[in-house]
Design a binder for these strands. Sequence first.
DNA 1: ATGGCGTATGGAATACGA
Length: 269
Amino acid sequence: MTDRLKLVTWNINSVRLRMPIVEKLIEEIAPDVICLQETKCPDANFPENAFRKAGYEYIAINGQKGYHGVATVSRLPLENIEKRDFCDMGDSRHVAVDVPFNGTSLRLHNFYVPAGGDEPNREINPKFAHKLDFMAEMKSWLQGSETNRPAVLVGDLNVAPYEHDVWSHKQLLRVVSHTPVETELFEDVRETGGWLDAMRQFTPMDDKLYTWWSYRAKDWSKADKGRRLDHVWVSEPLAPHIKGTSVLRDARGWEKPSDHAPVIAEFAA
DNA sequence: ATGGCGTATGGAATACGA
């Protein structure tokens, strides 16, 4: 049965520390495929056995010690695993796979885009320069390559592109993740690659939509000063098949939570 | 009060996240 597919993307902020809530997600949502970011774990230490026990036998990981790291785990076979080293930094920020869907397969890219540091100025902040260079390389690498086949790009893209993707557009215009130089480049990457913003197809542009809430808020839910940093993009051939997206906000309140909530996307033939 | 916290490394204090 490959005529339905339930996909979750989640910045887990240490996969080893958070296996209990990953298992809770699996019990509650039963995704077919889970894309994780910030696994913070070398490949040799990735909790493969726990995922296998939970039914996720197919695992594509691109991890490193201490920082970053992405993983795509699946109940369905994964093929053509590809890991690209953007900006030649040696960072583990991307893994792509083919997943069976609807009698064929879809290409699934899992990204962890650099956060970009504090100062939104590439001249004085190398992390911000890296973030912009990373997105520029995404644009040139992806332009046209996934336009004509079913494809999904998910992950922590670390940009909140629209006014209602942040709690205060005005107060965040000079804060990294929502500056015009980032949001304009972000849209350029998306449009040039032929991608559609799936989450905004199911939530009106005038409604607030967040996937991340800072650990530092005294009461994250009450303050609700969130940002939409995690995304689901789909290629045009796949667009007719996306049946819904949602943010599992509850997971932000689970025991020892990640500061990101999972984003769920469902596809059908 | 948009950082007041949290994680990894390493075994205290620092780098990093956004």
